[in-house]
Design a protein around this nucleic acid. Sequence first.
DNA 1: ACCTGAACACCGTTCAAGT
DNA 2: ACCTGAACACCGTTCAAGT
Lengths: 191, 191
Amino acid sequence: MSDAHRAARREQIAEAALQVLARKGSDTSIAEIVAECGLSAGAIYGNFENKADLARYIAGQLLHRRIGTLDDAVADGAVRTPAEVLRLFMTLRRQPPDLSVLLQFWGEATVDPELKAVLETRATEFRDAVVRALRPWAATQPEDTEPLALRTAEVCMAMVQGYFVNTALFGWMTGAEYLDGAERAFGSPLH
Amino acid sequence: MSDAHRAARREQIAEAALQVLARKGSDTSIAEIVAECGLSAGAIYGNFENKADLARYIAGQLLHRRIGTLDDAVADGAVRTPAEVLRLFMTLRRQPPDLSVLLQFWGEATVDPELKAVLETRATEFRDAVVRALRPWAATQPEDTEPLALRTAEVCMAMVQGYFVNTALFGWMTGAEYLDGAERAFGSPLH
DNA sequence: ACCTGAACACCGTTCAAGT
DNA sequence: ACCTGAACACCGTTCAAGT
């Protein structure tokens, strides 16, 4: 019971903190998280080491959930081209607050090695899920399957990260327009 | 003299703040900026409205300088494919602190509309510089030159932003590997 | 055992006093 | 006119006191 209670408390605090982070970013105060979750300052420090530890927990949870969603979507093992996997990746239902805090975590991770380590772990898991999604396609190509799937997965990750920046900040293109534009830019050069 | 003095003071403060931001991120305190620039707290508030205004100034300056560098690099008007423009873009000399604070600004901009407006302005200027770089190539293609150059420039911007995230946080690929991978993923599908 | 909330050192910002 | 730095309200964090 105690373990379950503790896990529930952490989740209650993390959920409240996520809401405030999405509104206030790095201006988020413990007092506001306290107000949002209905507990006290002491309760937060009984469940997390400090504010940075709470942020790491939120980042880990946020990204962990997405990996399962992607894995489920490609569980059928169908042959999907990189463009099809990217299309799938970009349309995974994603609440707007998530994108905002994801960009906040990226920025903070450049100066916080412990947060960076959390993001690296999750990004690697994510990339491996993309490798699994791309493997059927890579097997149909003349190159060695594994290196091609890995490199292509890394390219897809980078392209999605760029798409997130664009979506959250500039709103220039839809996912479909991005993919069409990339195919046009990198597709057959003699077109 | 007064205007020049004021501009120099702002630059002195901004340069010091940039150094501290690259080390401490959102933990950066006014006290640390004061120590770095050798002035006083009051001097900062005489030259900037507040901490957020100082951040906006730094973001604007940082990105403004880059646009000139890109424009200079493509001033010859040579025909460059999207891959060649991207290669150029990714190899513009860029001090490591710049990439860290750029990611920090992206994260903060998701919750700070005024900072977001500064980034949008600079991103549009940047995109227009990429349009100029791509126009000679776009003119050799069968589609309408302007829409193709614009959309391709947006795609290039997004891909570079994704490359920055990867470089700053994960270090998976060099720029050349990213481009090769993208050409392999989106190039002739029947290869 | 866990939670509360007053207490503490430090934060961003202001402004009277200096030059 | 511009700069200084003590002062103020508020921040993250702790911990004695409660249940």
